[in-house]
Structure formats: structure tokens, C-alpha cells
Design a protein around this nucleic acid. Structure first.
Lengths: 137, 137
DNA sequence: ATACCTGCAAAGTCTTTGCCTTAGG
DNA sequence: CCTAAGGCAAAGACTTTGCAGGTAT
């Protein structure tokens, strides 16, 4: 947590009550959070407004602390970029359930190759699996 | 094309002017199309309304003829599911340029393993790479 | 002190729906 | 004929912004 705040400071963000609260909420959640999820978080709602959350998420994404996920049929969701790699997800396309996949990223090598062959920089990727969960099958 | 229409018929869709036009437009496009892209397609606009396009896309997705792609910072886009596998994409996160990747899918095996280990069915996935293109770097 | 951050409210953008009419099989 | 599909217009859902006042540094 203190590490996250330092990263923010180093990148010129001011450490405000809102920033702390948002980082706390993201850190506490075990699944990616949408703007709406955060807005409806009771603790957070007491401390800041939707616009603040929105703009803070933007800033955090901007400095690379946050990963943006574009899941089907739900707005963007965000998860903290912890140092130790990222997770991929498996979603049920019927009930919307989100499961986390603890797998080592299968496309890292490909990503580097692409960057080189196409002259791209600052690469990232999004890999999401969809299907019907056992209950919905 | 005739093949696509047959698939539609087999799945109970009526072959209307709108359906033909939408399939044509998707078929002609070499990149995934958003609802807005289609709405603004002059040919198509003469033949059908936004609601029609929207509902037709839904139906086509429903019968598995259409793949829905959720690219960051742009609405959903759709591409026809041709028999011979699907494509993945590389997007510039600054200018929004979309490049098609002609690579054999690197996560097919993983997808099957997941289906088995987690009891999911009707699996699909979305793999998208993001980065800064040479011009935007 | 000053540049950044916040709240509020309003506007944007894209998606989805209701309802009545039209037309495919 | 009967039911799916279409058109129009309005509502929803989510995202984004302007501006005036507050706050971290």
C-alpha cells in the first residue's frame, strides 16, 4: 500500500483522502472493479464522488498502476497492477460470474515478438475466456 | 455468402433485405464493425434502421455467426465467424488504429483445458494486444 | 500561493426497448 | 395467415466534462 502511494507521488499525483480510499478499495477487492462497483462501495461513497473516482482511475491507469479490462456486456473494470504479473479471467456469458485464472501468461513471448515486428511500444494485452459455467450449462 | 444465409435459415431466421445487407457489409469489411460503423454505412443506411442492425447483430451473435469484440475505448465491434478460425487484433491505444494478426491461436489448448477443469461449456475467448504504434510512439 | 483535486450537475455516447406496422414463409 | 422482423422515438446505462470552490505541497 505504501508502495502504491509512493508510485503515485513519484508520478506527480497528490495523495488525497480520495486517492487513498480508492486504492484501498481496489486493493481489498479480489475481483476487478467497475466505476459503478466503486461508486456503490459504502466506505468509498462517504469519501468521494463519482467524478473523483472516474478521474482518479484515469490517473492511475495513466501512470500504469491500474489495468483496464473490457469485459463483454459490462462496463470497463479495473484491477491494480501488482508487481507479480497479472491475472486473466474466465467469465460465464450467462450469469456474468467472473473467475480468476492463476496461470502464467501464455502470450508474453508473442507480445514481445509483435512489438518488435510491428514497431509497437508500451505493449499490453487482454486475454479473457468466456463460456457457460456449470450451473448455467 | 449463400452459406451464411443457409446457416441463418437453419437457425430460424428470416432472410430479409436487412439481414442480407448487414451480412454483405460485414463480409465486405476487413475490420470488425461497430454498430455505429454499420449505421453510417451509406448502403446499409438506405436499407435499415439502427434498431434493426442492433437486433440483427444480436441474432447473428446468438446463432454463432458473429464474434463480439470488446475493444478498449470503443464500443463493441463485430466480425463474421468464418469457418477457418478467427483473428486476433493489435490496437494502438493512442490513435485507435486496428491491425489484424494472422497468427494461429495461441490459447486454444488452454481453452480446452479450462473447459474441462472448470466444467465450462461453449467456450470462446478474446485476445487483444494494445500498444503505441510507430507513429504514436 | 498555486497548481492540482473535488463535487455537483449536466451533457455525451453508445446501447436497448416499446409499440405499432410490415413482410417473410 | 401468423409470427418474426422493422421503423421510430424514447429511455437506459455508462462515461465524460465545465466550472466554482477546496486542499496538498
Amino acid at each position: 500500500m505504501e508502495e502504491l502511494l509512493n508510485h503515485c507521488r513519484e508520478n506527480g499525483l497528490r495523495v488525497t483522502v480520495g486517492l487513498r480510499a480508492i486504492l484501498d478499495a481496489l486493493n481489498a477487492a479480489d475481483l476487478p472493479q467497475s466505476l459503478l462497483d466503486l461508486e456503490q462501495n459504502k466506505e468509498l461513497a462517504k469519501l468521494c464522488d463519482r467524478a473523483t473516482i472516474f478521474r482518479t482511475l484515469q490517473r492511475l491507469e495513466g501512470i500504469g498502476l491500474l489495468r483496464r479490462l473490457n469485459f463483454s456486456h459490462s462496463g470497463a473494470k479495473f484491477s491494480l497492477n501488482t508487481g507479480d504479473g497479472h491475472k486473466e479471467y474466465l467469465l460465464c456469458k450467462n450469469c456474468g460470474d467472473v473467475q480468476t485464472l492463476d496461470i502464467s501468461c501464455p502470450v508474453h513471448k508473442l507480445e514481445r515478438e509483435l512489438a518488435e515486428s510491428r514497431g509497437f511500444s508500451e505493449m499490453s494485452h487482454e486475454l479473457t475466456f468466456y463460456g457457460l459455467c456449470p450451473q448455467c450449462s
